[in-house]
């Protein structure tokens, strides 16, 4: 985790715990601000891996940097080469600290696995519940702590 900083203090006023399914585990505690998208992401041709942003102009998180964020989005769409784009984000040090999907797919899973980016999905709750979340802390690989 070369690009992760030391965790800051986590001043949870009303922390909530959500259960997650771990696809690629985190090797240490991770926390970060949430970057939330209710629509899927196409990594190939929809993301600029040099800048680390969604490059599709119509996309709801267009131009918002992934770096140091917990990227929350339903799933990946488009070409399976997207897995290699995720790897490139990591190499360029502009990848998110972790990703959370509604239901992970093979492109996100293989891309995060190649790049050692922690990945979780949410079998028991709706991703939309995280839409107003400001920060997420991942201490264990089975649950996340959510601060709104």
């Amino acid at each position: 985790m070369k690009n992760a900083q030391e965790p800051k203090s986590f001043n949870a006023i009303r922390p909530r715990i959500a259960r997650v399914r771990c696809i690629v585990e985190a090797s240490r505690v991770i926390e970060g601000e949430v970057l939330f998208s209710s629509s899927p992401i196409a990594f190939l041709q929809g993301v600029d891996p040099e800048k680390g942003i969604v490059s599709e102009k119509q996309h709801e998180i267009y131009n918002k940097p992934f770096a140091n964020k917990i990227l929350v989005f339903p799933n990946t769409v488009g070409s399976s080469v997207g897995a290699y784009v995720i790897y490139r984000l990591k190499e360029n040090r502009v990848a998110p600290r972790a990703m959370i999907n509604q239901v992970s797919d093979i492109i996100t899973a293989s891309g995060c696995a190649l790049s050692a980016i922690p990945l979780f999905d949410l079998p028991n709750s709706k991703i939309s519940e995280l839409s107003k979340t400001k920060e997420i802390k991942i201490e264990k690989n089975s649950q996340i702590i959510v601060r709104s």
Binding site: C22, D105, I106, A109, S110, A113, L114, A116, L119
Partner: peptide, 13 residues
């Protein structure tokens, strides 16, 4: 390490 991480992730899916 990478290859096993990929298999594990896909296995978990």
């Amino acid at each position: 390490e990478i290859a096993y991480r990929v298999l594990l992730a896909i296995g978990r899916l």
